[in-house]
Design a protein around this nucleic acid. Structure first.
Lengths: 155, 155
DNA sequence: TAAAATTAAAGTCAAGGAAAGTCAAATAGA
DNA sequence: TCTATTTGACTTTCCTTGACTTTAATTTTA
């Protein structure tokens, strides 16, 4: 029962890999048809997996001959880290933290093993704190680590 | 009579034996169904039989197509790490943790940057928990990371 | 030819479904 | 008894679906 959304995500990322300008254009209905899902699921994938936060830009056009354009942006490391520190704030969910770590890894800001370490570190099971402070501890931990690794981004 | 929890434990361990990367993914409901028990009993088995101290890491995801992933560290091949897990116990001071991390780094088990991440992670400042549970959280976190790094992932 | 109607997209949002998590009460075993 | 196990009600998280809306291009009509 592997999730269709994940499969679509991977598919889109592969398309982006192949594209030489880091941008692709799709048709929502066509893609939905291909994966046998509701068209709106494409929107779901886009908003959950290809958000601005993760370094993607979405443009689209409705009506006849409409399309969706997905652009993988170049990310400046320091600025991105700075942005993340703000974004994390003083509380963050596990999913959101994991997604940040994945992005850092995908963008080669951290190695695979470092990604592994971070993902484990921010997991609910590692942080055996009372549930009501878990997200706060997680935010603090993640920010500390980011600052340590990317010192100049954190000034 | 023989307890269902024990049977489930053995079953999972067999699955892990067969898996070539010492990690398996299960579906909680499916397994519960198979053993005719309440789904939450699976959680019970996981927390009592597959704890960090015993060298297991658990990851999971909710929602449609959710799953539970069980990762085993190869205790035989990582005698030293196993020893460390025991030494850490369920509570450890910052100084002691730092000393462990230094040793790991000296012995080239982890890179300089990984050492940095670990030291930051277990620092008092990162772990903004109530002081009375700080050493416990630190122990848990450090053990999780060690198992993650030294899991027997065949890669 | 310009407005109107039709058609062909994409967008939004809320409801429903499919998992896993939590916690505490009931029960069984030592 | 006392601890370990079992059960189940309730919660949380994530995914999927579908009805309805909005926008743009194309075709029809006056």
């Amino acid at each position: 029962m592997s999730r269709v959304s994940d499969i679509i995500e991977v598919f889109i990322k592969e398309l982006l890999e192949e594209a030489d300008d880091c941008a692709i254009e799709i048709q929502r209905n066509e893609l939905a048809n291909y994966f046998n899902c509701a068209p709106s699921q494409i929107n779901y994938v886009l908003t959950t997996r290809f958000s601005l936060d993760k370094g993607y830009l979405i443009e689209s056009r409705r009506g006849g001959g409409g399309h969706i354009k997905i652009i993988k942006m170049d990310m400046d490391q320091n600025r991105y880290i700075q942005h993340l520190l703000n974004e994390i704030g003083d509380s963050i969910s596990k999913m959101k933290a994991a997604s940040i770590i994945n992005t850092l890894q995908e963008r080669k800001f951290i190695s695979e093993r470092e990604g592994l370490i971070l993902r484990v570190a921010i997991s609910d099971r590692s942080l055996n704190t009372p549930i009501n402070i878990k997200n706060r501890v997680r935010a603090n931990l993640l920010k500390s680590i980011l600052i340590a690794i990317f010192q100049d981004g954190g000034k």
